[in-house]
């Protein structure tokens, strides 16, 4: 706690100014990055470039927002700053439920379906799974943070290998369909899915905006929150369901990203120095956008190599995770 206290604001007035300044800077940064992303190195017809890049930009914004918000929410209800939905295997759960869907229904049936219906089916399977899992993990007796973390991490590995195993059991043709469905990337985004994604994420965001105070109270931890009239079980499960939706959207669009959410949420906490959701949620979202759009611009336009952004982010995110653990990861 001590080393962190130095960089945190000392008075409420400072705190307020700092948070506002951070939000403004982040917003400006995102705007600049987006402008550069849209214009840098453009050749040929502007109309085409803007439309093409605009689609990509919308996708990046959506992903960044979904990943950052889901991470902050998850950390609020689990009362820690290290665990994220993807470290706990939420995204693996999504991959697994898609795989199981193909395994049981067959690609022929699925290819006839409306992609929106298909996405809804994957989403529902995943949400049910995650509810069952996290009910069991988080709503039981109180337990040590490290055991919980390790359980989550190993569970994530288990889900990933299980998904891989089921994929290996599939017919090679079915597997092709599946990997088409699963392994999108930051640069190849399906417009239909993006439409659904935007609708879902906007709905979740709207709900959040109306419940910021409730989130703050949940963030005080179970005993204090229950005392203040929060119905813990119901509210935590509800928030976890929203997290599932956000993770499903981002995983469907870009595939699993393990440490990105952690990186964005940790940097945002550092930048704003407050835990109020009214500030923290937008800050995390903007930080993630800055990382994603800025990073993509740098990699694509300056270093001219594609899609490695995910890998670079994973690397730095992993390092941040280690630093957090080393600092003691206070609960």
């Amino acid at each position: 706690m001590q080393p962190e206290a130095r960089i945190l604001p000392v008075t409420p007035a400072q705190s307020e100014t700092r948070a506002q300044l951070a939000l403004i800077l982040l917003g400006g940064g995102v705007f600049l990055a987006a402008a550069l992303f849209m214009t840098l190195g453009a050749r040929g017809s502007w109309a085409f470039v803007l439309q093409f890049r605009g689609m990509k930009l919308l996708g990046l914004i959506l992903i960044a927002h979904a990943v950052a918000v889901s991470t902050v929410l998850f950390q609020t209800v689990t009362a820690n700053r290290i665990l994220t939905p993807s470290i706990m295997g939420f995204d693996a759960l999504f991959v697994l439920s898609s795989t199981l869907l193909i395994a049981f229904m067959g690609s022929v049936q699925l290819s006839g379906l409306d992609p929106r219906l298909l996405f809804a089916a994957r989403l529902i399977v995943m949400t049910l799974f995650s509810m069952a899992l996290y009910r069991w993990l988080f709503l039981g007796e109180e337990q040590s943070l490290h055991r919980l973390l390790l359980t989550g991490v190993v569970f994530g590995i288990f889900l990933r290998t299980l998904a891989e195993f089921v994929q290996r059991m599939l017919d090679p043709n079915e597997f092709m369909v599946l990997s088409d469905m699963l392994f999108a990337s930051f640069t190849k985004i399906d417009p239909v899915l993006m439409g659904i994604g935007w609708a879902l994420v906007l709905a979740v965001t709207l709900w959040l905006a109306r419940n910021l105070a409730r989130l703050d109270v949940i963030g005080l931890g179970r005993p204090v929150a229950v005392n203040l009239g929060i119905r813990w079980r119901r509210d935590v499960l509800l928030v976890l369901a929203l997290v599932s939706v956000l993770v499903a959207v981002s995983t469907a669009l870009v595939g699993p990203v393990t440490f990105f959410g952690l990186l964005a949420a940790s940097l945002a906490r550092l930048a704003v120095g407050t835990t109020r959701h009214a500030v923290l949620l937008p800050a995390a979202s903007l930080t993630a956008m800055l990382l994603l759009i800025g990073g993509q611009t740098l990699l694509e336009r300056l270093f001219a190599f594609n899609t490695a952004l995910g890998i670079v982010i994973e690397f730095f995110g992993g390092v941040v995770f280690l630093i957090l653990l080393l600092k003691g990861g206070r609960r």
Binding site: L150, G318, L322
Partner: peptide, 14 residues
């Protein structure tokens, strides 16, 4: 006991 493998697994990820 739990934090040791946890750190190892993350180090593996990095």
């Amino acid at each position: 006991q739990m934090i040791v493998p946890l750190i190892g697994i993350i180090l593996t990820g990095v």
